[in-house]
Design a binder for these strands. Structure first.
Lengths: 347, 347
DNA sequence: TCATTTATAGAAAAGGTTTTCTATAACTAT
DNA sequence: ATAGTTATAGAAAACCTTTTCTATAAATGA
């Protein structure tokens, strides 16, 4: 049993002017005499009138709304990106429709349709599903509506991408491990994600470049579900490996959760980073600063990723720049306490 | 330069019927001959027509959209609640507008207005600002639009509330510490939040009930900002205290982040939960399962909080139940490794 | 056979704005 | 004075739907 909202007509009646005039006062896009303006403003105030964005959106064909597709909301990686988007968007007086796709391609396409129906002005998709990119879904979407993809870059796909240079990030991290004297480096990844694939291929290339043997047995894979599961599975996997003598002195993990899981395993077995296993993570999420010891990791500046995506989509909306661009952001190795120089004698 | 969207008129033209008929095929709310229906469906398919929700919303005065106000998106507490809301909402074919108020009252009211302008069907506010509740803002809002508040309960305020029974939760946690033999219990809270106030008053009552002295010096306060800052500040604060001999053997922290910060302090000083300080957290966020040792904490079942809020708001929207209700959810003490029986001889 | 119902479908109104078009009065410039 | 601006404001069209009202033909019932 909610009150009825005042309309522009109500305001016009009270102020004894036409709705046209009210609209003009509201939008300040046409001269109105000070006296009438005052009358109108008083009426607006009195009725606590709020314009109906549906009607406005319908006629102007824009809604000051950006749709965001994200695979998860609880993951700190994504929430940081979203915060970045949000901060920029807010400044530009936009609002966002946030859709949690749960990392499922069918949800992702359904929700993109939903956003389209709701006439959002643009869509930002975070970590879009590879199959949708490859199938041309996003290229088709981009023809209907300004679209920016964060990560998920695929060569040859005609879309606007913003992404971190994970390849360089991975390479630098591995280089650091070598510099510390490590020669036997394991690689820990989740089951399927474009970014894991990229990192793995960099890992392989790196090992080859440095004349190190690639032992398939040192490429560890967890069934990544949510963050907690990822931690738990990494922990169990590493425990099993460490118990029987790992056969490696350093571990590159594809994200901080996996790294923390590995760290947990080390701790629980009474081993240590110092003597047994150096661990490097990826993402520099809050967890990497809270873990004990704190994680060495690769910072992706996720917030900036979000800000740039938002900025880019605004450019496209305003059609200042209709070109298709791929924007690469630098990563940064953050050295903390989970990586140690390999002692002579260890192997 | 985006393609123009097909309208219902385009479909009608292609199928050689009236728009009325197309609408009927779309909404299945009126009989249409099979032959015509087929023609229309083909036209829809061919034009890949998607109805314009703005127009539909305008005339039906409902948008199948729920607005969510949250103080933070990165905080795991809130994201779990949001996930709960989302899960229920999705089932009911609603979409959500998620607004990050950053815990600022002025943003919160501004964004509520924004949601109103966008004709959402209902608003769920997570941890609403106390000053807005007290000032009557939410009571006024609830008259304009179905509204449900998660937490922030204030006596006498005529709003629909869903909340955890934090009082019982706090009491149970403290009781457990006593059961372990602790007599000197400190209380760690953030600067200002309704929930901290509640917990503190329970703490005071509990101490009195059990004939324990309340020493003001054992009520510790951190300047809670974001999660990372909370952890860091708790860590530093506890380090300082522990160094000079804490004067207490157990600590009740108002949330898991504070608890983890305290745990960090214990670890870094080479002390232990076993011998020096039992710590109990609140919320049972993922972090409590990842920390070493794992945290004893109070589970609030945040997901369920979200689900119930969503369910409640649907009821209100459908006007099945226009009563004002306060729904209290049980909490549950989760015993893990950060609390230990007090050894005789310690004090 | 005539009146009534039923199935089907179109015309037009309604929803709340913005925008274009038109109108009037008051200036300005010749 | 006369024509051309300028400032101001209203009427009406447009945006894309759903819904109500009206209409026709076929089916049913008496």
């Amino acid at each position: 049993m909610t009150e009825k909202r005042a309309t522009i007509q109500d305001v016009a009646n009270l102020a004894k002017v036409s709705i046209t005039t009210v609209s003009r006062v509201l939008n300040k896009n046409y001269p109105v005499k000070d006296a009438t303006k005052k009358k109108v403003e008083e009426a607006i105030e009195r009725l606590s009138y709020k314009p109906n964005m549906l009607a406005r959106g319908l006629i102007q064909n824009k809604t000051q709304t950006i749709g965001i597709l994200t695979p998860s909301i609880e993951n700190l990686f994504f929430s940081e990106v979203i915060k970045g988007i949000d901060a920029y968007i807010k400044k530009e007086r936009y609002t966002s429709f946030l859709c949690n796709t749960e990392g499922k391609a069918n949800y992702e396409s359904l929700m993109a349709d939903n956003l389209l129906e709701r006439s959002v002005d643009g869509i930002i998709s975070i970590d879009p599903q590879t199959e949708l990119i490859r199938s041309g879904f996003y290229e088709a979407l981009a023809k209907k509506i300004p679209t920016v993809l964060i990560n998920g870059y695929n060569k040859g796909v005609q879309c606007n991408f913003i992404l971190n240079d994970q390849e360089v990030g991975t390479y630098e991290a591995l280089k650091y491990l070598i510099k510390l004297g490590h020669r036997t480096i394991a690689f820990l990844r989740g089951k399927r994600s474009h970014s894991y694939d990229i990192k793995e291929s960099v890992y392989r290339k790196f090992m080859k470049d440095n004349g190190l043997e690639i032992i398939e047995d040192r490429i560890l894979v967890v069934n990544s579900g949510n963050d907690l599961e990822t931690v738990q599975q990494s922990r169990e996997l590493l425990k099993k490996r460490l118990k029987k003598g790992a056969g490696f002195t350093a571990l590159f993990a594809c994200n901080d959760w996996m790294a923390v899981g590995a760290l947990n395993a080390v701790n629980r077995l009474g081993l240590s980073v110092k003597n047994d296993l150096s661990i490097i993570g990826f993402d520099n999420t809050i967890i990497s600063q809270i873990s004990e010891p704190q994680l060495t990791t690769v910072d992706q500046n996720m917030n900036r990723l979000g800000v740039l995506a938002a900025k880019r989509i605004k450019e496209i909306i305003k059609e200042k720049d209709t070109e298709i661009k791929k924007i690469l952001l630098d990563t940064r190795l953050v050295i903390r306490k989970s990586t140690r120089e390999l002692k002579q004698g260890n192997k």
